[in-house]
């Protein structure tokens, strides 16, 4: 068995009845692999990790791995994670969501989690579509694309998840693709180690729903597209806006030091104890 496979097996729940629910060729398995490799590199024990997910294909990720795992309601993963982290700040809380999960039904929770700056890691698998329910358009479905609920072409504009996270105040934002798997490992590792709210947007593909309807080919063709449109953030700085049109910047987009919520809360507790003790 290859070293990398051994590593993955160390973290899988073997008593869980495999096979998993994902289609052959899905990017979710690559994200899960990257997540496992990243966690292994951070050195945190299985007991220290709480993996929280929402609803949808990406939401099923939690059941397969041997951590404290929490599969929540649609869009609400970050709210559950907030409670877990505040009740026990020593836990490393990692949240996995899909694009519809995080930015449609969970959009409000997402921007407020970014603003609040708890020490959480949010991984958003963006495949531009609601895969599990059969390919309806999501907030990241591009204008003009076809979906089960946009058979004449989509008439709305799409969110850029990473840019939304930056604007909402996240301390750290990175973007990768499932094609650039080793970069994804590194981004997730950095996001876990970052003190503050860290967002990784993992560009993925849904060949079953999005690819089929938009004649983009299978997983190989869709991953090739990821390879072609991706530009490293360092290189993007040397390019003009025209050159960057329709390209996806990958790498660390933002890394800034902001007051961390649990730290502020500790100060608040001290102030409150001092004030009430002085009476």
């Amino acid at each position: 068995m290859a070293e990398i496979t051994k590593l993955i097996h160390k973290y899988l729940r073997h008593e869980k009845k495999f096979p998993h629910v994902w289609c052959p060729g899905c990017g979710n398995g690559i994200v899960l692999g990257a997540l496992i490799r990243a966690i292994d590199r951070t050195g945190f024990s299985k007991d220290e990790i709480v993996l929280v997910s929402g609803i949808g294909c990406a939401g099923r990720l939690t059941v397969y791995v041997d951590f404290n795992t929490l599969h929540t309601t649609h869009g609400r993963a970050l709210t559950f994670a907030t409670g877990v982290k505040l009740a026990n700040p020593k836990l490393q809380v990692i949240v996995v969501m899909g694009d519809g999960d995080a930015t449609a039904i969970g959009g409000n929770h997402f921007i407020h989690a970014a603003r609040r700056n708890l020490n959480l890691t949010a991984i958003i698998v963006n495949n531009n579509v609601y895969g599990m329910t059969g390919g309806q358009y999501s907030p990241t479905t591009p204008y003009g694309a076809r979906a089960a609920t946009a058979v004449y072409g989509h008439i709305e504009q799409a969110f850029s998840i990473a840019e939304l996270a930056v604007t909402a105040g996240a301390a750290w934002v990175g973007r990768g693709t499932v094609y650039h798997a080793s970069l994804l490992d590194q981004l997730i590792e950095q996001a876990i180690l970052k003190r503050g709210f860290a967002v990784v947007e993992a560009i993925s593909h849904c060949h079953t729903q999005f690819g089929r309807r938009n004649r983009l080919g299978g997983p190989v063709e869709m991953m090739r597209w990821q390879k072609e449109v991706a530009v490293r953030v360092e290189k993007a700085k040397t390019m003009t806006p025209e050159e960057l049109k329709d390209r996806i910047t990958i790498g660390v987009l933002v890394d800034r030091e902001l007051p961390v919520y649990t730290h502020e809360l500790r100060k608040l507790r001290e102030a409150s104890q001092a004030a009430l003790g002085a009476k």
Binding site: T79, T82, G83, V84, K85, L86, A87, N88, L91
Partner: peptide, 9 residues
Amino acid sequence: GAVIGASLA
């Protein structure tokens, strides 16, 4: 959601 998360922890 936060209440449930806190209770689980």
